[in-house]
Design a protein around this nucleic acid. Sequence first.
DNA 1: GACGCGCCGGGAAACGTTTACCTCTTGACG
DNA 2: CGTCAAGAGGTAAACGTTTCCCGGCGCGTC
Lengths: 364, 364
Amino acid sequence: MPNKKNARTRHTSVSQRRQVTIIEVAEAAGVSIATVSRVMSGSPSVRSELVERVRRAADELGYRPNPAAQRLASGVGDTIGVVVPNLANPYFYDVIKAMNIAAATEGYQMLIADANEDPDEEFDLSTNLLRQVDGLVLVSPRMPAASLRRLAQENVHIVLVNRVAVGVGLPTVAVDNYSAMVEICGHLARLGHRRVVYLAGPELSWQNVERQRAVEQAEAFGLEVQTVPAGASIDTGHAAVDRALELKPTALVSFNDLVAFGALARLQELGVRVPDDVSLTGFDDIPFAAYVSPSLTTANSPQRVLGQRAWQVLHQMMSGAEVDDTPLVKAEVVIRGSTAAPTSSTPDRLPSRPAAGSAAPSVH
Amino acid sequence: MPNKKNARTRHTSVSQRRQVTIIEVAEAAGVSIATVSRVMSGSPSVRSELVERVRRAADELGYRPNPAAQRLASGVGDTIGVVVPNLANPYFYDVIKAMNIAAATEGYQMLIADANEDPDEEFDLSTNLLRQVDGLVLVSPRMPAASLRRLAQENVHIVLVNRVAVGVGLPTVAVDNYSAMVEICGHLARLGHRRVVYLAGPELSWQNVERQRAVEQAEAFGLEVQTVPAGASIDTGHAAVDRALELKPTALVSFNDLVAFGALARLQELGVRVPDDVSLTGFDDIPFAAYVSPSLTTANSPQRVLGQRAWQVLHQMMSGAEVDDTPLVKAEVVIRGSTAAPTSSTPDRLPSRPAAGSAAPSVH
DNA sequence: GACGCGCCGGGAAACGTTTACCTCTTGACG
DNA sequence: CGTCAAGAGGTAAACGTTTCCCGGCGCGTC
């Protein structure tokens, strides 16, 4: 048995100390397990002397109740599930974080699942989670309304974040995407933009539908709008730019900040200046939107508020309370450096950087 | 009973359909519950005819095993726990995401806890999680070695990410912070920097200790190093700049990218140009480091690799296998726009912009 | 001084699985 | 033709709680 050249330290099996159960505590304290259970759950109907004795016994033995047994016996637990389309998107983290803080305060934990932008996986994950949590939060779910409806019939409390689904009967907490996007378009129109390309998000995303609807509505402002699919991430935003530029826009309206970042990177690679040659907007105002260069004009989607409200609503439901239907949360447009008036009349994207004057040759 | 002015839609209680249990399936299929259990867990010792019958019955009834009962009876589950210092730090996103993908492939779920940079909370959360998961991943834990040792004695498999703790006996997956930071310092020294301030991370962070050790070692390069505490987030980085500038450095070496972002913002507020007046470096290379302006010189800490390896190691432990001690993962230094040679000889940080005017008041 | 009512606390039945153990059947082999 | 082994599947005992139900006891009331 030649010893391997690779040093291995044996991190072998765990110590097999058996778990301390309620029975041992009961024996140590000289009471019945019922009493121990009562003490642990703070029932008022135990003499304080016994409470004391049980507490001490539990401490000394290092007793900690078995959550699986508790859940099985009582039917309730202390865990909520969260399903998000993509764990790499900072937008969701702020929502999750806020929700987690709120939930943790109340003693709840979070089981998190990443659906990878796949509606089917999303549904499957939700279905699985259903069985082991007391409540479920679906953040920006992409699954069809029919799927949502099926979930709604299950034996769990569910709240939707950033997805308004009519006729499904699930309480919802969402941002007013439409108004904010209209405002962004208004801003661009006022700057004098005419040809705009919308870098569209996931087709099945409600937020995308809303934002796109807003952009298209902006033709009322005299904007000429075209759409190019661009996903929801940096990569996909990056990849969409070339097609978008073929449409010779003066401004790029991105589905979200990530897409805008990707677009920005690609534009810079191409030598297209922002906002000089083309303006660029994002959506969400993730913490980094202020730090890119140029800083991003975007809409501040209040993730914290969403997270908190989502928990609030879920908690109400779990407590059997009637739930207020929360109105859409306003998103505030924040104007930064990535938008400006278009330079020439009919600006053609031309990477060439003529001296200092930037007289781009007019094409088309 | 005046009706409220606020429209409320009653999202009342959940439908009280009782759960379908294994017993009903057994009855429907005309077999014992043992057989159902065997079929569900894919035991080979069941006639295929029965398998078929049970499957059909289960499907028709919509049977899904109760996870709590399974866990209680079998002693194992399909959940791992993850504790991170701060869910809002993008560095962790990719680690978590990679880990989640790997784990999900194997049918495992993730219970996530955010310790809020608090070592005590970290320990408590870990202790809680212990009881309900099959494995635990502690990402960049700040808790003292003694606490880790206590956790190590518990009845669960634990792996540490980015925390090397000797004498604790916990397998570890970590980045070679030291070498990368030495390299960063070398880069600065080569550029001609002499006075450097290290914007230090959390004192209890192993990564900070390593990085700081590297920076201090850089005095061998002729660097004069001073340290200012700066936390791990944008805010704290922002707040630390003023104190750092009092030391009149030509370069700021940040604990991580977030701190660097905060510092950058503050520097810009103060009119201090980067890298002209002062150079700035980060660490981690989070996805946004390339997009700030100036883009950030930093070290690429391979989060994906860490996440994958962490799962790998944990999985090995859970399967009872012996675990390879993984070597430190290399972090690659990536040089971008935020570092340059210091301007004058003995550069007093002077925000003043010689050419274009703007003589900022010299602060002490 | 008996009776009844609250409070406490114990006994034991769930909760829904997994799995050890046992029985029965069937086929092979001597 | 008898014996034995192997395979299939059923019975029931865990797993560790919660909680229903009930008995005992002390005290107030008539």
